[in-house]
Amino acid sequence: MTLLPDLALVLLILTAAVWTVAVRDRRDAVIGFIVVGLLLSLAWVRLNAVDVALTEAAIGGGATGLLLLRACARLVPRPAESVLPHPAMWILTGLLCSVIAAGLAAIVVMPVEPPATLAPEAAANMGELGLGNPVTVVLLAYRALDTLLEKVVLVLALIGVWTLTPEQFWGGAPASLRAQQSSGALRLLAQVLPPVGVVIGVYLVWNGADHPGGTFQGGTVLAAMWLLVMMADLREPPEIRLHTLRLLVILGPVVFLVAGFAGFWIANGFLSYPPAFAKPIIVIVEAALALSIAVILGMLVAGPAARAPR
């Protein structure tokens, strides 16, 4: 097969990226970034990494774009202050970046032979667990510690965002995500899409055990649906002191920790699963994690509390 389509895709990605960095208006830059994300998810398809492509489509196309556009909406417009960096500065930076890019490029065009890979090891151990998706197995079995700690990172990020709440609003609800102007089309979308989206999200989580997909992709889709409902003004963001909210946030990490510690009794130690029950345990952990991810991502986009608790 010819490489031309791949070259074209790479060219498109790099063009969009350059434009994103070069454009003056910050909202235009965000749109450029969303386009880069969409194109990258196609690139991941071409790299045979369908799981990553799904993640990129959900995050790049949905969550990050929304987060950044909302930031643009809330940042006050400022008159253009022409702080053109000193020519010497940008020439120097440009040179430095080119050198780094050239170095990386020189390394990637010389692939090592035979290719460095852990695929055979990953394949050899998969039988024990009864799951069909190798990426899920890596995430929830071989490298479960990374995944567990990454979920803690998410909880910490949420705490970090909440820290920025002004003292008098602590415990209250984040600022509304309501659109500028109420619109029938938007409300209709927010009524029709979420049921479908929830099914798709659940499907991705469930399917993730054996096919591409998984907790993070499914959780992001669920979060996106929640955010859509909030943007259409059908629901307000919840108050951050709510007990249910807190419990949903920690549900995933807690179930994961319990499964991990249970390994001391029912298997060979922390985060190991008895072969007979590996699949059900992993699926339960994934379900809990997806729910927590959905809530955390939604609250991360919603931001710190901006109203006093009722």
């Binding site: 500028q180 102007q181 619109s183 089309a185 938007l186 209709l188 979308l189 029709v192 899409l193 479908v196």
Partner: peptide, 24 residues
């Protein structure tokens, strides 16, 4: 089929929203 339906819905809504945005 679901993908097609979703694209229809998205296109209709996005079209409306962008038109509104332009109007504003």
């Amino acid at each position: 089929v679901v993908v097609w339906l979703l694209v229809q819905l998205a296109a209709a809504t996005a079209g409306q929203l962008i038109a509104q945005f332009v109007g504003l």
